[in-house]
Design a protein around this nucleic acid. Sequence first.
RNA 1: CGGGGCGUAGCUCAGCUUGGUAGAGCGCUACGUUUGGGACGUAGAAGUCGCUGGUUCGAGUCCAGUCGCCCCGACCA
Length: 486
Amino acid sequence: MSAGPQNAVVKEIPPKAADLSAWYTAACLKAELVSYSPVRGCVVLRPAGFGLWENLQRELDARFKATGHENAYFPLLIPESLLMKEAEHVEGFAPEVAWVTHGGQEELTERLAIRPTSEVIIGTMYAQWVQSYRDLPILINQWANVLRWEKATRPFLRTMEFLWQEGHTAHASAEEAREETLRMLDVYRDFAENVAAVPVYAGVKSASERFPGAVETFAIEALMPDGKALQSATSHDLGQNFARAYDITFADVDQQIKHAYTTSWGMSWRMLGAMIMTHGDDRGLRIPPKMAPIEVVFVPIVRTNDDRAIAACREAADTLKAAGFRVRVDVRDEQPGWKYSEWDLRGVPVRVEIGPRDVDAGTAVLVRRDRAKGDPQQKQSVSVEALQRVLPALLDDIQRSLYAQAKQFLDERTIAASDRVSFYEMCKNRAGMIDVPWCARPECEAHVKEETGATTRLLRDLAAGATACIPCGEPAKVNAYFAQSY
RNA sequence: CGGGGCGUAGCUCAGCUUGGUAGAGCGCUACGUUUGGGACGUAGAAGUCGCUGGUUCGAGUCCAGUCGCCCCGACCA
C-alpha cells in the first residue's frame, strides 16, 4: 500500500484534494468498510460496508416493489452452450468470464461460466415460462453476486466479484419495454439523488458505450471530485435481440407468434464508491443520513467518580431507538476526543455528546458531521427531551446539504466548450462534464478518446441553434457530455 | 495487459548502496492516574523480513523466478 502524506487532521488518511485515489482507498479501509482478502481483486465487505449495502438494498428494493417487480434467484453457473447464443453479448463479455472446468477430480464435458451477468440464464428460463401475451410482462429482479475477470481493481469501483441487483423484464411490445427501461432509469436517478445524495445526469449512451447485445443503453452518471465521471447504474432496452437468441416467444392477441421485448437494469456496490468519493472530506467519510447504518452515535463523557453520562446516553438512545432511529452508544474505554475522530472517520451524520454538565442541565450537545470543525453551526446544545423532535429535521438538513454541495460541484463543472481546441484541453484536464454539440460518429468519439482519454458519457437532444460538432466540425446531431471516466 | 513504485511487528516506516543473526513511532495486553476534539505513567507481548530457489561459512541486505498491493495508461458496473 502506498504511504501517502501524513495529515494533522486525521492521521489515518491523506488529504482528499491532494490525491483522491489514495484518500479513497485509505478511507474505505480505515473506516472498515472493506478489507482486502487473500483472493486477488476480491474484497471482504465488513459490517460497516455491508450496512451501507443493506440500506441501498432496502431503499432500492422498495422502489422495485412499488413499480411492480418481484425478487427471484437464478443460478451462478451458466453452461457454455447457453452463453454462446447471443453473439454480441458473448464477444463483449468473453475476456472477463471465469470458467469452471472440473467437478472434483473429473473434467466437465461442458465448461460452466460463472455469471458475469444473467441475461443468458434468465432469458433461457423466460423462454420456458412465456407462451402467451397473457404471461407478459414478466417483471423480476435478483440480488446477486457476479464475477468479472478484471485486471485492475479498487474497492467498490471495480472488484472481480461484486454485489448488485439485476432486473430482467419481458414485454409484449417495444413501447412497453422502452417505457420500463426509462422507468427504472428514473428509479436509479431518484435513488442516487434522494438517498445517496449523489447528483447525476440520466440519459442515453453512445453506440460504443452500449451494453453488448442491447438496442439502447441508458445510464446515470455522477461526477467525482477529480473531474472523472462514474457510471453508477445502467438500464438496457434489449429489444428482441435476447428473445431471438434465447427463443422467448409468445402468441399475441392477433394470434401471431412473436418474440418478446426484454430489458435489463442494474446497480452495483459501485454506487457506494460514488457516494463515498462524492461526500468524504479530510476527516473521512460523510455518509448521507438515509444511507447511514448508524444515524446518531452517543459519546458519554465520563469523569472519575462520575459515570452518570453513560446512563443518560443509554436512556436517550433507547428512547430514540424505540422511535425508529438507528443509534449506537459508544461506551468503549477511550478518550472522548478519540471517539469523535473515529466516528468522524466512519461518517456517522450526527454525534450526541453528554457529559457531567449536560447531565446536571438535562441537555446534550448535537454535532453534525457535514459541517467543518469550528463552524459555529457544527454544534448545538439541546435538552435531552427535545432530541426526538429535533433530530428528524437535523438529519434531513444534513441529507439536503450534502446533496446541495455535490450538486453545486456538478453544476460548476458542467461546462460548454465552444471550440475544438478548448474542448480537447478540457477533456485532457478533466475539467468536468464537457457539454458539446456532437456528430454522433464513432470515429469522432474514438479520436477524442485517443487524444484525451475522454469519451461520451451521455447524449441528449441537440441544443437549440447548434449546427456543428465541436470535436470534429461535421454536422451535429445530438448534444453529448464528454468526460474521462472510472 | 504495458510503464512506474512497493512488500520488514496490527499500522506507518527505518535498516539493503558496503552480507555478520531484528529496530523506531503509533497500536496491542495488565495495572494505576485520566476523560468536553485522537491523554499519561509503569510493566509486558509481538516479526520463519511476501513466497520459492540460487550465490555464500553466513542473506532482510546480492541474483533469478513468482505472488500480491499501489499509481499511471489500455479494457469494462
